[in-house]
Design a protein around this nucleic acid. Structure first.
Length: 354
DNA sequence: CAATCGCTTCACT
DNA sequence: CTAACGAGTGAAGCGATTG
């Protein structure tokens, strides 16, 4: 079990959307507020990011707005402005790229940087420099974790939030993770945690001496991944040229309905948006998926793969409307519809449309 | 038997 | 502190199908 050679610097912005909003609404400082889904109907939205003052009232991302307002009735809600956050994210990534290391933008507000080849003291120095640039230059708070491995670095980062900095030396990795909960492993959510709890495994140290086969039986290949992690082996690679596998849009209807014309109108809107996205990334699609969520949250999808690649919005809409027909039923109200395209290809590859 | 397809599940912000 | 009825996006996984 060869340990990873190099350190990974993992940077995660603190309540990113909320911090971005503070840049242009400084008056909100200290006030509990939340960035919420920009949905037509506020009664159906959820909190996307709560600032730390709001988190004191147990408000967090994913929580229905209505619930958040119960917890703190004066909560100030701002509709998410993704274009704005994207611009700021680009500034951050440009700045980080200028150091010349291999870097992965893991999400709009997270980056992983591979410093393999650099001596230990230098790694910490550079990471501090990055934090200073984000804090002084961009006026945004962030947390940095450093460890031997992308997953471990992210975990270090998570446990140092907010506005933190944590360096885990290579030989301290096992000590660091052993007493953490299984749910502290990125990718282990509610369901996986539950399954592990059924085997009486709650902490990472419980995984360490577990039977690998049992874990694989329970979780598939992911089982062996977390087994390795629990033993200090983190083989996650930094992927700088991340390939998009699918793109789509989905949206709640203003109210539940089974009126075909209303659903088709929404489908057209979503198809156009999706086609716009695919064109803006200079890609072509071959597969089309439609999704319907009914009033009771039951969700069905239908997928069709074409015999050719295209970026046409019209093709998307007409195929999607055929796919969705069998999902619309007289007696079941529809709450939400979605369109997604996959099996993508660069349009520069110049293939023919047949 | 490997690649692709269609669909469900899961995680995150 | 549970559950909360909850938006939007995308990847992973898996069984069935196909060639």
């Amino acid at each position: 079990m060869a340990a990873r050679e190099g350190y990974i610097i993992y940077i995660d912005m603190d309540s990113f959307f909320a911090s971005c909003e503070l840049l242009r609404h400084p008056d909100l400082k200290e006030k509990p507020f939340a960035v919420v889904t920009k949905s037509a109907d506020k009664f159906r939205g959820v909190v996307q990011t709560a600032n730390y003052s709001a988190r004191k009232f147990s408000i967090h991302s994913g929580m229905p707005i209505m619930k958040a307002l119960q917890l703190y009735p004066n909560l100030y809600c701002i509709k998410a402005d993704h274009d704005y956050y994207e611009e700021i994210s680009d500034e951050i990534s440009d700045m980080l790229k200028s150091y010349g290391f291999e870097i992965e933008m893991v999400s709009i507000d997270e980056a992983a940087i591979d410093t393999t080849g650099l001596e230990e003291s230098k790694v910490v120095e550079i990471a501090k420099d990055m934090k200073r640039k984000i804090s002084d230059g961009l006026k945004l708070p962030c947390t940095i974790g450093i460890a031997k491995g992308k997953t471990f670095a992210k975990m270090a980062c998570d446990s140092a939030k907010p506005n933190g900095f944590l360096f885990i030396k290579g030989d301290e990795t096992l000590d660091f993770i052993s007493y953490k909960r299984v749910s502290d492993i990125p990718g282990v959510g509610k369901k996986t945690e539950e399954k592990l709890a059924n085997l009486n495994m709650y902490y990472i140290r419980d995984l360490k001496n577990a039977n690998v086969q049992a874990l694989v039986g329970l979780l598939g290949e992911y089982g062996s991944k977390i087994y390795n992690l629990s033993n200090g082996i983190d083989e996650e690679k930094i992927v700088s040229d991340w390939v998009t596998l699918s793109v789509g849009r989905e949206k709640n209807l203003n109210e539940d309905t089974n009126d075909t014309s209303v659903i088709m109108a929404k489908l057209k809107e979503l198809s156009n948006d999706t086609a716009d996205m695919i064109r803006s990334t200079k890609k072509l699609y071959k597969s089309i998926t439609v999704k319907v969520r009914y009033f009771d949250f039951n969700t069905k999808i239908k997928t069709k793969t074409l015999s050719y690649y295209t970026d046409s919005a019209d093709v998307l809409y007409s195929e999607a409307s055929e796919l969705i027909k069998p999902l619309i039923k007289d007696n079941i109200m529809v709450r939400r519809v979605g369109v997604r395209v996959s099996t993508l290809m660069d349009s520069s590859h110049q293939q023919k449309l047949f």
